[in-house]
Nucleic acid binder design. Sequence first.
DNA 1: TCTAATCTCCTAATAAATTAGGAGAAGAAT
DNA 2: ATTCTTCTCCTAATTTATTAGGAGATTAGA
Lengths: 126, 126
Amino acid sequence: MGERDKEALTKLELQIMQVIWRLGPCNVAAVKAELEQPLAYTTVQTMLNILHKKGKLKRKLRGRAYEYSAVVTEAKASGHALRDLIDRMFGGSSEELVMSLIKSKQIDAEKIAELSKRLEEERGEA
Amino acid sequence: MGERDKEALTKLELQIMQVIWRLGPCNVAAVKAELEQPLAYTTVQTMLNILHKKGKLKRKLRGRAYEYSAVVTEAKASGHALRDLIDRMFGGSSEELVMSLIKSKQIDAEKIAELSKRLEEERGEA
DNA sequence: TCTAATCTCCTAATAAATTAGGAGAAGAAT
DNA sequence: ATTCTTCTCCTAATTTATTAGGAGATTAGA
């Protein structure tokens, strides 16, 4: 990865970000408690450090522990992950992705129609 | 990764699979020649071995070199990658994913409508 | 046949991601 | 004040992913 692509979150990084998106600002203990896998305190801390270094989290001393909070929104992160996948697997075409969803039966005509409709409505309100 | 998830392709693995999906059965040299990054012959070979071990490729001696061919289709692999992303980032909901595409302006109402239409047509023919 | 060019296998170095131990600081409890 | 706990930082072991070297086999061509 040549300097670029440092946006991407690894699996564990994502899980940790998700805890913080869900709970809001957290210290190490809170994140650790919320993770389904049992991880050592220091493991969680290392990951939080990495995320902080990558600019995904900011932190602030609260009491005697740091409290970490998200710098990027979940929407932004998922948008980015999606963009990556589209570029890497669907030749950059989001239509291809949607077609793939349909072909693999992960979504159907009804759902698409429903989404279109919801879209129209939102469009109308805006 | 507890035994499961061994479906997932890493970045380089994916690139190599893509060469084979595009060109059909290939030997090491052919894959190496087709990759944009310059990689050593043995590097490509190691990756092909790994992919073979993972069951993504099968191989057959053709002349004096192995010829590797895809066991999984591109559609299947991309379907799986998509499923993973949906599970990991969109709480398992493909609708959420599509909404995210829309919100991040990676696809718009027109496209969705077009897709729906194309779907109807295909439905009609089937 | 002999040589040069592959190609395979085995091995391993490097890098990135995940996991965690230990020392010391600093507040809390007695 | 002394002890106990909790938290930070620094460090590093482990695992997975990427990269590649070298020995020996086999074949093609002179």
